[in-house]
């Protein structure tokens, strides 16, 4: 089908592609390199050192970073798990539930956190918690994260389910499997890569969120992004570059995992 697509390539486009990748990666690489700088100043290079990584764990700010890391990771884990469960359930209804009246409206509702600018969602959720008199803190961050993680979990999960024909379950039920058995033994295992990819993306989205978290967090409760933002406002220090590099590396690993898992094909 792809009859010699090469023939229609434009010579300048290769250069622009490399430029694009250079633009995307150069800043991240520079920060990564400078996080290994053995200098108090962020401007001059004084040789390779791991001192700022040590500083993150035992330095003067380490207590702050540790509690922020605990909050970030525990919130991301819980929010991504709940969001994945909610999204899987919704996907079953949307992809295996036939046509129904509220289908388009429901899809609109699920996509809402992606379509609306994040700062608007942040304002809305802050106002919501304020109205019902919910004290801002760990719980408010967690609830907000569960909500905005749902669409990110939903998209890979529903895409996966769409790729699995209904006939697999039908065949199982023709052989006297119950609906529950067909779900647990046939659909769920085939869905697993999609569910896992959705979970990982939701996890990353939660871990990386700054704007909504910054609005709904209480005084004294920090996540890694809000802690980093607070420090950066006073100037970029080398320990911030070290912690940023670690977070970058972590995100890259998770995204890579999610990428490969979502490509596992169990329908063959």
């Amino acid at each position: 089908m792809r009859v010699g697509a090469d023939r229609f390539a434009f010579p300048g486009f290769r250069t622009l592609t490399f430029l694009c990748l250079f633009i995307l990666y150069a800043p991240l690489l520079v920060v990564t390199v400078y996080s290994f700088n053995d200098s108090r100043s962020i401007t001059t290079w004084e040789g390779f050192s791991l001192r700022w990584y040590v500083d993150v764990f035992v330095g003067p700010d380490s207590a702050k970073f540790k509690s922020a890391a605990f909050n970030s990771f525990s919130i991301a884990l819980i929010a991504a798990s709940v969001a994945t469960a909610v999204a899987t359930s919704a996907a079953l209804a949307m992809v295996r539930g036939g046509r129904f009246k509220l289908r388009t409206a429901t899809f609109g509702l699920i996509s809402l956190p992606i379509l609306v600018p994040e700062i608007v969602t942040a304002v809305a959720i802050l106002i919501f918690f304020n109205t019902i008199g919910f004290t801002r803190g760990y719980m408010t961050i967690l609830i907000a994260h569960i909500a905005f993680c749902i669409p990110f979990a939903y998209l890979p999960i529903s895409a996966r389910m769409q790729g699995i024909e209904g006939s697999f379950e039908q065949a199982a039920m023709d052989l006297y499997a119950t609906r529950a058995q067909a779900f647990r033994r046939i659909l769920l295992p085939m869905m697993m890569p999609g569910i896992f990819a959705g979970f990982l993306l939701a996890f990353i989205i939660s871990l990386d969120d700054f704007i909504i978290t910054n609005f709904v967090k209480g005084a004294g409760v920090e996540t890694l992004p809000t802690a980093i933002f607070g420090s950066v406002k006073q100037g970029i220090r080398p320990n911030i570059m070290a912690i940023s590099t670690m977070l970058l590396a972590f995100s890259t690993v998770i995204v890579t995992l999610s990428w490969f898992i979502s490509r596992i094909d169990r329908t063959k």
Binding site: A85, V86, A87, S89, A90, L92, A93, M94, V95, R96, G97, G98, R99, F100, L102, R103, T106, L109, I110, I150, Y154, M161, Q162, I164, E165, G166, E169, Q170, R179
Partner: peptide, 17 residues
């Protein structure tokens, strides 16, 4: 939708979302 196998339960399935 690719099938309507879960149509009877769809209200419950969508409820959490």
């Amino acid at each position: 939708a690719t099938s309507d196998a879960y149509a009877p339960a769809r209200g419950w399935l969508l409820l959490p979302a």
